[in-house]
Design a protein around this nucleic acid. Structure first.
Lengths: 158, 158
DNA sequence: TATTGTTATACTCTATAACTATA
DNA sequence: TATAGTTATAGAGTATAACAATA
């Protein structure tokens, strides 16, 4: 007997213990976050991650590329492509420093500064609590717990 | 002037407002969750998502494939491939019901039942708080807030 | 005509390792 | 010998639309 009769109301699917699984919930949450990002920024051809990279370069001018990759958990090979792309768009400048000519220091160009200046508020607004069924307090708490989850010690916000 | 002097202590990269960005934190958190999953289950060739799919089929025998895809936010084309793969492995059975021969009902095979039975505890344990710097209460709260973030109403756990 | 699932295609993302330049 | 970054390659994941079967 294998359920050949038509189900009455098929719209209820139970998830059981998955509703407590952080891995499962994080995957779904990230699907939503990506969708949210593309709804807000997809037009300009900006990719997820690119804004974050520029933002961190802006806060840490001259940061070494490998350290940036490590911090943002982006693989070196991927970071190379991302930086090259941003360089081609005139947003980022690569500098080979004299004290270690193997390494690459990263800076925003004037255009890159202008871009992050122009879109920073929109970026940080697009995924904040005002677009969610979360209160501001819950949103901060979610961010706090996610930082704990990934082992990120909160540094000074400038 | 482009920072040609060697930095003294280069290991501190500030993230600024990114530390409050849910999209950013969710991406990093998912990288960690994936790594965690592969550390625990990578050997058996199990992919992220496959266990979840089997788990939900087990709780909802005969669930329609499209409804499953919608629930788990997996695209139909991807779900087809995933189900075919699970079918080839003898874990899932596809049934075309008489009441709607366009649709596909999904069931676990005996082997699929055995698999979820054998690995369920390990799966739900591998990403719980005991492996994290989170208390049990914080872990539950994180799950709760993630459910709120994705708009998931918690159903009855069986 | 609309819906369910499948297929085909292309594209992005990712992982890995080999490679170069430099230390 | 070790490190920083790059390149090349292949593999996995994803999006899209066209398609066949059924409703």
């Amino acid at each position: 007997m294998t359920g050949v009769a038509a189900p009455n109301a098929e719209e209820a699917v139970s998830l059981g213990e998955l509703e407590e699984s952080l891995g499962f919930l994080l995957r779904i949450a990230q699907v939503h976050a990506f969708q949210r990002f593309y709804d807000a920024f997809g037009d300009g051809g900006l990719r997820p991650g690119e804004f974050s990279v520029m933002w961190v370069i802006r806060l840490n001018p001259g940061v070494r590329q490998g350290l940036l990759a490590e911090t943002l958990e982006i693989k070196p090979a991927q970071m190379t492509k991302m930086v090259r792309r941003l360089e081609e768009q005139g947003l980022v400048r690569r500098v080979i420093p004299d004290y270690d000519r193997r390494s690459v220091q990263l800076f925003l160009t004037g255009q890159g500064e202008a871009f992050t200046e122009a879109h920073g508020e929109a970026f940080f607004h697009h995924d904040d609590h005002t677009h969610l069924d979360l209160s501001e307090r819950e949103s901060h708490q979610l961010a706090h717990l996610l930082r704990r989850y990934i082992g990120l010690k909160k540094g000074p916000v400038e």
